[in-house]
């Protein structure tokens, strides 16, 4: 109807082809080529985190199930159809402890694939025990069969997640891992214009307001800055950085200077979000912890999962931009576990 498809075939598709994006559509309905190409690039590069979310779910599940087995072993035995609940308490408790440790290992990301495969082994043990239960005429077969069915279903999930994680595709996040470089990237939408986001970030002295591990950043030259980060046990790590690229309202890139003890580099991009949603902020970080003591301190800075730290920082950037400050709750104002209850020490604003 109206617009011919061939008439608009041109080079804007970005992937070397000749047909425009959405060539089956009338021209008016097609996506803007440049924007679409930009998002396609992200889609091509970004492999996500593989089976991680299923792994997370199993982690939570493990802990829940484990707690129940641990805390109320008799009840759990009964539910599984085991007669001599009292005598089986020890076994149930042990199974519970195992579940909990699997859950914690999966969630804390210490080699999740290993934890998952050990879950699969654990499932096999459960199944063997349930098999024994069914065989024993003393026990309630209906219940035990039912429990078996549930364990079988979970086993299937475990195997699936373990498989996915073991063959997790190479992503930008683990690309340089063998060279000791840690890379990570995260993104978030902020309800402020690219101009406002850029301006705030461009003054590096603002960064400690939302990057919690930074103590201070001082601007020391036109393209130079001095960074000071908090390390565990009251120590600090310092380095100089230079701005390597600066495109107003679009992009800022920086890296540590040659002589810095800690190699690190970052890029932040600001792009207008569609439909008046503000700005899409994308940040990429790269760092190589040096060997030795200092290295482990730096690694601690970025916690186990560097992506988590970056995401926290981004979230705080969003809060500062949108609401003016970082919000605390009674529990999160304190370090470590704290109930949702005010603290008795006076609070420094």
């Amino acid at each position: 109807m109206g617009t011919s498809i061939e008439a608009t075939a041109n080079a804007t598709s970005g992937n070397g082809g000749t047909a425009p994006l959405g060539s089956a559509l009338a021209e008016r309905a097609r996506p803007r080529a440049a924007a679409a190409a930009r998002y396609q690039r992200i889609a091509n590069e970004d492999r996500g985190t593989g089976g991680e979310s299923l792994a997370d779910f199993l982690g939570v599940f493990s802990i829940g199930l484990g707690l129940a087995q641990f805390l109320v072993p008799e009840a759990m035995s009964k539910i599984c159809g085991i007669r001599d609940a009292e005598g089986n308490k020890g076994v149930m408790r042990a199974l519970g402890a195992r579940e909990i440790s699997h859950g914690v290992a999966i969630l804390s990301r210490q080699q999740p694939e290993k934890a998952l495969w050990s879950r699969v082994a654990g499932d096999a043990l459960d199944l063997a025990l349930l098999g024994k239960t069914i065989a024993n005429p003393e026990n309630n077969r209906g219940r035990a069969l039912f429990a078996t069915a549930n364990v079988l279903a979970v086993t299937a999930l475990d195997v699936m997640a373990a498989r996915t994680l073991s063959q997790q595709p190479r992503t930008i996040a683990n690309e340089g891992a063998d060279k000791g470089i840690i890379r990570t990237k995260r993104s978030l939408t902020i309800n402020k214009s690219p101009e406002e986001c850029y301006a705030f970030w461009h003054n590096f002295e603002n960064l400690p307001r939302f990057m919690r591990h930074l103590e201070s950043v001082s601007v020391t030259g036109e393209r130079r800055s001095h960074w000071k980060a908090k390390a565990p046990a009251g120590a600090t790590v310092e380095w100089d950085a230079e701005t390597t690229e600066d495109r107003p309202n679009e992009l800022i890139a920086w890296r540590s200077t040659e002589d810095a003890e800690v190699f690190n580099a970052g890029t932040v991009r600001f792009e207008r979000a569609p439909g008046g949603r503000g700005t899409e902020v994308r940040i990429e970080l790269e760092y190589k912890p040096p060997l030795g003591k200092l290295g482990s301190k730096v690694a601690m800075l970025f916690r186990e999962e560097p992506g988590q730290q970056v995401m926290d920082d981004l979230r705080h950037f969003k809060q500062v931009m949108e609401t003016g400050e970082i919000l605390f709750s009674d529990a999160t104002k304190q370090r470590g576990m704290h109930p949702a209850q005010p603290d008795d020490k006076p609070v420094q604003l």
Binding site: T189, N191, G278, D312, R315, K318, E322, S329, A331, T332
Partner: peptide, 24 residues
């Protein structure tokens, strides 16, 4: 609810994007 984020401005206060410090 913060009143500033996209959700709040759309009137969807219970999905405010800034008010849960344990969002992660």
């Amino acid at each position: 609810a913060c009143g500033n984020c996209n959700a709040c401005q759309a009137g969807a206060y219970s999905i405010c994007e800034n008010s849960n410090p344990n969002a992660y």
